Amino acid sequence: MSLKSSSDLPDPEGPPATPKDAATVVLLREGGSGVEVFLQRRVAAMAFAAGMTVFPGGGVDKRDADASISWAGPDAAWWASKFSCSESLARALVCAAVRETFEESGVLLAGTETSVVADTAEFAGARERLVSREQSLAGFLAEAGLTLRADLLRPWANWVTPPQEARRYDTRFFVAALPEGQRADGATTEADASGWRAAADALGDAEAGRSTLMPPTWFTLTEIGEFTSVREALTAERSIKKITPTLVREGDRARIVLEPS
């Protein structure tokens, strides 16, 4: 995969920045022509990945690790084994995935131990408070009497921002199906366009220059495009290795080299 010009490559001085932990969720639904994914184009003013088409997600908030959160599904130890991290971080990553998905798309992976919220409209105020950091995920779920549904998520991948970048993230990717009755929206200040696309169509937009994808998004869309149903994607066996792309200058061009950490 090539970049437009090697002159656009960051060239920070000193050692690489330490990546911050982050979570991204690939929302899936059955579309007319197969599996569709929910994508958002980040506004040009964003400090990281400005103008890029991405999945909902963001950095871990230290409050995401709150052990008081009511939880259903695989426990922190199971998630830690999948992402090769500590149990406390694994718990925070799952919570960050749920929180960021709700903040950026309005989709809430919560309910009771046996049911999932079907209409999130009543939680619009809480969504705003989560975005502004006035309220924590733990506070919101407790106030609403909701249980986080970790069983609705599946571990997918682990990508780390190239060492040449000033802002770096160690991002764990999850996949999840859009809960019945819920809708994903674009009501976030971080995106100027949102919507559902078949993976092949999203990749076609990028190849035609109508959108810009980072390597993790490109590769994830390629993988999702191989499945014929959401169920097939959710039940796929995944072996997760930390991948850190490297940006390599080659004259006036640059390419991305992918190697597991």
Rank of each mutant, 00 (worst) to 15 (best):
E207A: 15
T212Y: 14
T228P: 03
T212G: 01
L221I: 10
W196K: 10
T220M: 07
W218D: 02
E207K: 13
A187F: 07
A176G: 01
A200G: 04
A193D: 14
A208I: 05
A202H: 12
Q182F: 00
A177Y: 03
D192K: 01
A206T: 01
L221E: 02
A184Q: 03
S194M: 12
P179H: 04
Q182Y: 00
D205F: 09
A206E: 06
T220F: 04
E226L: 12
T212Q: 08
M214Y: 08
A193M: 09
D205H: 04
T189V: 14
A176V: 04
L221Q: 01
R210L: 13
M214C: 15
R183C: 02
T220A: 10
A176H: 01
W196E: 13
A202L: 14
W196T: 04
G204D: 03
D205A: 13
W218Y: 10
T220H: 11
W218E: 00
W218S: 09
G181W: 04
E207C: 05
S211H: 05
T212H: 11
G209D: 07
S229R: 08
G195C: 05
A202Y: 03
S211G: 03
P216A: 01
E207F: 03
T212I: 07
E207P: 03
A208T: 11
F219V: 02
E223Q: 10
A187D: 14
P179E: 11
A191S: 15
G209F: 09
E226W: 09
R210P: 02
A200W: 10
E207Q: 15
T217R: 06
G181Q: 11
A200N: 07
I224E: 07
R231N: 13
D192T: 02
T189P: 02
G195D: 11
D205L: 15
G186I: 00
T217K: 05
S229P: 10
G181K: 06
A206F: 12
P215Q: 09
R231W: 11
A193G: 10
T228E: 06
M214V: 14
T222K: 14
P215M: 08
W196N: 12
S194N: 09
E223R: 14
P215T: 10
G181M: 14
T220Y: 00
E232G: 03
G181D: 09
P215L: 07
A199P: 15
A191R: 04
V230K: 01
T228Y: 01
T222V: 13
T188R: 00
L178V: 07
A184R: 03
T217F: 02
W218N: 02
R183L: 11
G204V: 12
L213M: 08
D201T: 12
S211Y: 09
R183I: 05
A199F: 13
S211V: 15
E223D: 14
E207D: 14
T228V: 05
I224K: 04
T228D: 12
D185N: 11
W196H: 09
A200L: 11
R197E: 12
T217G: 01
S229T: 10
G186E: 09
Q182S: 00
D201S: 08
R231T: 13
A200R: 15
A198M: 13
A191P: 02
A199I: 01
P215G: 08
A202V: 08
F219C: 08
A177Q: 10
F227S: 01
